[in-house]
Amino acid sequence: MTDTKAEILARIRAALGTDGGSAAPAGATAAAGTVPREYRSAGEHAPGSDVVLDLLIDRLVDYKAHVHRVPVAELPALLARLVAPTTREAPRGSVVVPHGLDGDWLSALGDDVDVRTDSRDAPLSAADLDEIDAVVTAARVAVAETGTIVLDGEPDQGRRAISLVPDVHVCVVRADQVVQTVPEAVRLLGRDPARPLTWISGPSATSDIELDRVEGVHGPRTLHVVLVS
């Protein structure tokens, strides 16, 4: 143990009166382990139910995210449309995908879109990613009440950098991944807490200038959420 660490811990114990030098103050240790948890640990609606999906859509639209709801059969066509080049000045588009993404999802992509695959073993550089228009990922879980999507870095979601640097993020969420409340999501993520987690609630935004909200600063300026059922 370093001297500094020992000194700080000694200061804390002295402050709490648990250093043996004086009697422990009443309440200091008695307080431990008595956390009231009367708050809701889950919502009243089942994950993936219509009420929960409608709530998520309402919250996402409020954040200025673009929401699409499709049956799984129509997913490839929708993704092709979302990542297609949009301007005459840039006749070719580009998209990066994590190596574990379901290959069928990209089956309808046009010839005018370059697809780059990224993985922890073969990562693209930040400069490479800066040249790519869009990213398509899956998600781990979504929270309806707060309009939040969480990525946990697994092979279908990829390294954190790929969903950060490109300007358009298309995130595919299965209906059964949508829970109502924050505690439901935290407990699910807590099964693998060491995974790098990114909680996303709408596109990047700032309210730093006169509290006027501006969507799109450093993260992707456009967020598409595709709800698949």
Binding site: Y39, R59, Y63, S119, R120, D121, P123, V143, E145, T146, G147, T148, G153, R159, R160, A161, V182, V186, P193, A194, R195, P196, L197, T198, W199, I200, S201, G202, P203, S204, A205, S207, G219
Partner: peptide, 28 residues
Amino acid sequence: LQLLPRSSTGERMNPYTSMWTGVTPGDG
């Protein structure tokens, strides 16, 4: 994560929250 964003920016949730645990080889 329920108390902070609503009290702070008055949002249901802030746009981004990052969580990391030590080092993840190949990511970050």
